[in-house]
Design a protein around this nucleic acid. Structure first.
Length: 564
RNA sequence: GCGCCCGUAGCUCAGUUGGAUAGAGCGCGUGCCUCCGGAGCACGAGGUCACAGGUUCGAAUCCUGUCGGGCGCACCA
């Protein structure tokens, strides 16, 4: 990266001063008048050396090798900040790099192909996907991309809880509606499902199987109803996600853990550890030994396992499949499971923090200032599909991603439906599309713009310098976002980039300020600015790609309701 | 009661891992404007960073406590 020469120059100085190599932190100052790059090393050293930070800063500034590092000037400011201004050539050289790397600009290899699994969505197949799943789908997918961009080999996994009591409740609910179609009244069991989709399932069940389950109350019949319902709901969830642009490498079925004996073998393995005991007819694991609030039941008095046991078996299998890093994206209402799953795994010898969790808070949808709660079809909150059908998948994804996971968020439908620059997602897309229209006007293909094709030292305007600095940040933004499992950092960055770009673009409005326009008469400046325009386009396009959002070349008249 | 998350502009939210005068969008106010592509552009007002202590050169950020909100505390998932 471009900061590198400054780092080495600084290190040379600290070695010369007899301090040796020091951890050096370079940042781009918030305030542009503070230069292109800033460093607080003097403040850090002041404690160590017992000298005033300003004195140290002055000394470093005096002895630094400016020319080789491409530094135009150094200034000591405030308590001892070192503010560097880069020479125009050095600053702009990043543009050649961007254009050369193109779709690869921003990619890093911090973790040379190490394997990581991201598990997300993992909804029970007991109903349509709703808002919370949407947030999770958008978040998990972006996180997975971020990890890919920073060098991880990523596996996207979806865990279907297709076993257990919830599914039984589903089957019973469908059965009751099904019987009603044939004039038989029964009550939906407590904790059962009531949405309109249960009726739909009952109807398709009747269509496919006729009345054959009406009198048949055998175990086998109930199982058939259950399998049918689960199959239909899985298909629906899959197509909801597919249309949302989220895809998985693997769907892992909870039922498989029971079928292939992993649940049992995990139980046996746990028993070997000495942390298992029997109390009041149930089998417990002493999870308090690993920091859990209380011990947990693994096998109930009735002989059936709780969900806890298959959970441990599942995560054990993640480990044995070779994923030494696993990130589970879940709603924060599940945070109670974190400690117990980890405890179970620790009992089996897995590392303490395994797996990692990204827990996201709840979403509220608001229209006209008041909350939209209900979906008739789902019987609960509005579904993911209802949401993205109305506002479009790009906006839906962006809105879910632009807030950090652990903050509760308000999804404002009015803001989402605003098809102008006021909507941050469209603001970014506009900025991208504008560049394309400039190329069209200039009659060049963006792909034809080559690295090294222009004299970038001509980019000396403040507007240009600002934008260049902004673009330079992209790779480090991605590292930070990936390290923090925080896609919203990318959103924040892209929006800011679009703002900077808009300021630059509008400043060069040909009717007002033709000398600042990209397509100026001076052909040398023009080609330099086209490189800048191209670089901007690449950065926006790459950033949007990570978020799973399209980068249109033209904006359409109306938002695309592409969910249907 | 216990645990986790969150309290930052009227509203929705950022805040680069402890740095310079706390930022953005919406809304509001003022002045431009129909342009290389849209209700656009420029500028402005608006803050006791919930509160009280502590840590240090320096705190919205770290520690302790208090208040307020969300979620979770099953032999349900």
């Amino acid at each position: 990266m471009l900061h590198e020469p400054i780092k080495t120059a600084l290190n040379a100085v600290t070695i010369e001063m007899g301090i040796g190599e020091v951890e050096i932190d370079l940042e781009r100052p918030r305030n542009p008048s503070h230069g292109d790059v800033t460093c607080n090393i003097a403040l850090v050293l002041s404690g160590k050396l017992g000298r005033p930070s300003r004195d140290i800063a002055v000394e470093i500034a005096a002895s630094i090798e400016k020319d080789t590092a491409g530094i135009a000037s150094i200034e000591v400011a405030g308590p001892g900040f070192l503010n560097f201004r880069l020479s125009a050539v050095t600053a702009a050289s990043i543009l050649d790099e961007i254009v050369a790397k193109n779709e690869g600009f921003g990619r890093q290899n911090i973790r040379e192909g190490a394997h990581v699994m991201v598990e997300f969505v993992s909804a029970n197949p007991t109903g349509p996907l709703h808002l919370g799943h949407g947030r999770q789908a958008a978040l998990g997918d972006a996180l997975a991309s971020l990890l890919e961009w920073t060098g991880w080999q990523v596996h996207r996994e979806y865990y279907y809880n297709d076993a257990g009591t919830q599914i039984d409740k589903l089957a019973q609910s469908v059965r009751v509606r099904y019987l009603a179609l044939f004039g038989r009244q029964e009550e939906i069991p407590e904790g059962g499902y009531h949405g309109e989709y249960i009726n739909e399932l009952a109807e398709s069940l009747a269509e496919e199987f006729g009345d054959q389950f009406v009198l048949d109350e055998s175990k086998k019949a109930v199982e058939q109803i259950r399998n049918f319902s689960v199959r239909c709901l899985r298909e629906e969830q899959d197509s909801d996600l597919d249309d949302f642009g989220v895809h998985f490498d693997e769907y892992y079925l909870e039922s498989s853990l029971h079928d292939n004996g992993r649940v049992n073998s995990t139980l046996e393995a746990l028993k070997q550890t000495g942390f298992v005991y029997v109390h009041e007819g149930a089998t417990w694991l002493k999870t308090t030994a690993f920091g859990d609030q209380k011990d947990r039941v693994m096998v109930r008095k009735n002989g059936l396992p709780t969900y806890f046991l298959p959970d441990v078996a599942y995560h054990m299998h993640k480990w044995t499949r070779g994923y030494e890093r696993v990130i589970n994206v879940q709603g924060s209402d599940h945070h109670g499971t974190v400690d117990r799953v980890r405890s179970g795994l620790q009992a089996l010898g897995l590392p303490k923090g395994y797996p990692e969790y990204v827990l996201h808070q709840m979403v509220r949808v608001v229209r006209d200032g008041s909350e939209v709660k209900f979906s008739k079809r789902a019987g609960t909150s509005i579904t993911l599909r209802e949401l993205y059908t109305e506002v479009g998948t790009d906006v839906t994804r962006y809105f879910f991603q632009m807030r950090k996971p652990d903050a509760q968020m308000v999804f404002d439908l009015d803001a989402a439906l605003d098809y102008s620059d006021k909507n941050p997602m469209y603001k970014i897309q506009y900025a991208h599309a504008r560049m394309h229209s400039i190329f069209a006007k200039a009659q060049v293909m963006p792909e034809e713009i080559e690295s090294g094709s222009a004299d970038l030292s001509l980019l000396t305007e403040d507007y240009e310098r600002q934008l260049i600095n902004q673009l330079r940040d992209f790779p480090s933004v991605l590292t930070r976002a990936a390290e923090n499992c925080a896609p919203h950092i990318v959103c924040e960055y892209l929006e800011q980039t679009a703002s900077t770009a808009n300021t630059w673009y509008h400043a060069g409005n040909p009717s007002r300020n033709p000398s600042l326009a990209v397509l100026v008469d001076d052909s040398k400046i023009r080609s330099a600015r086209l490189v800048l325009a191209r670089s901007l386009q690449i950065v926006l396009q790459n950033g949007l790609a990570i978020l799973g959002i399209t980068a249109p070349k033209r904006m359409m008249q109306e938002p695309a309701n592409d969910g249907t």
